[in-house]
Design a protein around this nucleic acid. Structure first.
Length: 248
DNA sequence: GGTTATGTTATTTC
DNA sequence: AGAAATAACATAAC
């Protein structure tokens, strides 16, 4: 369920709750001494990367859907409930999600300049931070939430294909101009993904993810778990260039 | 029934 | 100490 754009979409679905009073809170992950949240008002909903933040008067609840998380607005699912927030005008349930209470002001712990969906995302800084991981494979570096918060495995594969970079290129061997292209593409794909989500087209738009042949040249795609992260890479050996010591 | 999947974190091992 | 491997968590689809 996650990846930044889907979380921004989720926020869009929950905006109706902003300004509402919390009637009740349930969930196995919220300890009993935290139930006094009821009565507080929902001041704002923010997103950071793959996290959604429910900012109440005195405290913030952070929800991360991880790999299997689901949610239902004014509905039920037959799964393990991790958090239920009931407001005056509706209810949102989270299942199989990771939830945490944040007591500090969120501005002090989140830096939105690394969030690819944020208006304050800083491209140049992302490039510099990538260059700070010279030995990493590009397929791992693009998934680094401290550099490109919100980018997940689907976006990673799409970006590498569109910019024609082999996933096993080392960051230090990728020319700076190409790194800049990759960072820009992360933003582009993320914004498109968000729109696909709105249009309910998000399962059919990917060029290589879960596909078998390259849309450019028809060559069979390679599917392998690569890099330190061992996440699935879908790529074309014909048209995605491997940057290495030879051609850096 | 085994494998895989949009993810992260805690623990163990080297 | 610190990097790297492994386990842990949770759930559905093929």
């Amino acid at each position: 369920m996650p990846e930044g754009p889907q979380i921004v979409y989720l926020k869009e679905q929950t905006n109706q709750f902003i300004g509402q009073e919390l009637i009740s809170i349930e969930g196995s992950v919220i300890a009993s001494n935290e139930k006094n949240l009821a009565g507080q008002s929902l001041i704002d909903i923010k997103t950071f990367g793959k996290e959604i933040l429910f900012c109440f008067t005195r405290v913030t609840i952070r929800v991360h859907l991880m790999l299997f998380g689901r949610y239902a607005i004014d509905g039920e699912m037959n799964r393990k409930l991790t958090l239920e927030l009931e407001f005056e005008n509706g209810r949102i349930n989270f299942y199989a999600s990771s939830c945490r209470l944040i007591e500090a002001p969120v501005e002090t712990i989140y830096d939105w300049s690394v969030d690819v969906m944020s208006a304050s995302f800083d491209e140049r800084r992302a490039v510099i931070k990538l260059q700070g991981k010279p030995q990493q494979f590009i397929c791992d570096a693009l998934l680094d939430q401290n550099i490109l918060a919100g980018v997940g495995n689907k976006i990673k594969n799409e970006v590498l294909f569109r910019r024609q970079v082999h996933p096993l290129s080392k960051v230090k061997d990728v020319p700076e101009a190409k790194l800049r292209e990759l960072v820009k593409e992360c933003v582009t794909v993320s914004k498109q993904y968000f729109q696909w989500k709105r249009d309910a087209l998000d399962e059919e738009k990917w060029l290589v993810y879960k596909k078998t042949t390259c849309p450019r040249d028809g060559v069979l795609l390679v599917v392998e778990k690569l890099g330190r992260s061992k996440r699935s890479c879908y790529f074309c050996e014909q048209c995605q260039q491997l940057y290495d010591d030879q051609n850096a």
